[in-house]
């Protein structure tokens, strides 16, 4: 049987994903510091409302409430033994919402980072990382996820470990990294580096790209960096609705629905096929993005100037792909 996302990618020129999970759950009463994944069991009605908010606003695909649902993360809440169960339930609730949508909607099983640094730099071995991701993958698959979706990754080693785990679970997947440090991931990976890495993976993702990061201008520069490499695999752009501010005791992201609509159309022009929001993106944003995408005809690749004029300036001068980034200093022992 063909995967539902594969079919949708073949039929559609763009696919709209969902928006924020964490910030939306906050607005429903989640306390800071509590595990959102426990709500899959304690407040399934609110998780249904979260998913339905995106679907009703026009999302073609949404991520399950399982971002922190791996053993490494759940340990913090004494729930490390429940990774498979909590992930399964997040997908089960999602399956129900998607099947009632009356149109094809993809349930993507969210898999977030372990939070650990991988060996040799850190403690987490490849084998253990694969095991942690595999356990969560099996849960999401059992719950009925159409695809798995690893997100907000900074280290290539962790991305590759997730890919291997998804092969063990025998399920199609997508994957995004977060480019939040001078246009690169925290570990220094550029958009071009990611394309090279993704194209070498044995069980390649159905789509790859960027999520979260800093603001919509930066993520589009990253998408331009992806498409400049002419990858055969479709590109994902899932950016935050502006930057977070603290207003009246609540976190508020300052990107308006209008701004996110412009971002969505520019993302198409930059070469992304799967487009959506991340932190701070509400159903209002998604509705506006859907409307904008429906009336948008793909235009020429925008220049960086156009992006900056439309959405605001970049967080750094270079993203490391243009040869303009400063290079590390030469030291006497270094041979290059």
């Amino acid at each position: 049987m063909t995967n539902a996302l594969k079919r949708m990618l073949a039929e559609r020129s763009w696919i709209l994903t969902d928006g924020a999970t964490g910030t939306t759950l906050f607005n429903m009463g989640l306390s800071s510091g509590d595990a959102p994944e426990l709500w899959n069991v304690e407040h399934p009605d609110k998780i249904t409302a979260l998913y339905k908010g995106a679907v009703d606003a026009g999302s073609d695909l949404f991520l399950t409430n399982s971002f922190g649902g791996n053993g490494a993360r759940l340990k913090l809440h004494g729930a490390e033994k429940r990774a498979r169960e909590l992930s399964r339930i997040s997908a089960e609730i999602g399956r129900e919402v998607a099947d009632r949508a009356g149109r094809p909607v993809i349930v993507a099983g969210s898999v977030g980072p372990t939070g650990e640094i991988m060996a040799p730099l850190g403690e987490l071995t490849h084998e253990l990382a694969v095991e942690i991701f595999h356990e969560q993958a099996e849960g999401l698959k059992e719950g009925g996820a159409d695809v798995l979706w690893v997100e907000t990754i900074s280290a290539p080693e962790e991305f590759i470990a997730a890919a291997e785990a998804f092969a063990l679970a025998d399920i199609d997947w997508c994957g995004t990294m977060s480019f939040d440090t001078a246009g690169r991931t925290m570990m220094g990976i550029t958009s071009a580096d990611m394309v090279k890495m993704v194209e070498k993976i044995k069980n390649p993702p159905l789509a790859f790209g960027a999520n979260c990061g800093v603001g919509s201008s930066d993520i589009l520069r990253t998408v331009l960096g992806f498409s400049a490499q002419a990858p055969e695999i479709p590109i994902i752009s899932k950016g935050n609705a502006g930057i977070p501010k603290f207003v009246d005791g609540h976190i508020h992201y300052d990107g308006t629905p209008e701004l996110m609509s412009q971002y969505a159309c520019l993302a198409v022009d930059c070469g992304a096929q799967i487009i959506g929001g991340c932190c701070g993106t509400t159903p209002d944003h998604l509705r506006a993005m859907r409307r904008a995408l429906e009336s948008h005809t793909k235009g020429a690749r925008p220049t960086l100037d156009t992006i900056a004029q439309t959405l605001g300036s970049f967080s750094s001068v270079s993203d490391g792909t243009d040869g303009a980034a400063p290079s590390p200093r030469r030291t006497r022992r270094r041979k290059d």
Partner: peptide, 19 residues
Amino acid sequence: TIVGNDFRDGILFVPEVLL
């Protein structure tokens, strides 16, 4: 301090700074 400056300026990244 030199390492820190180059980290701040987006020349070095987390792996180099950890080392």
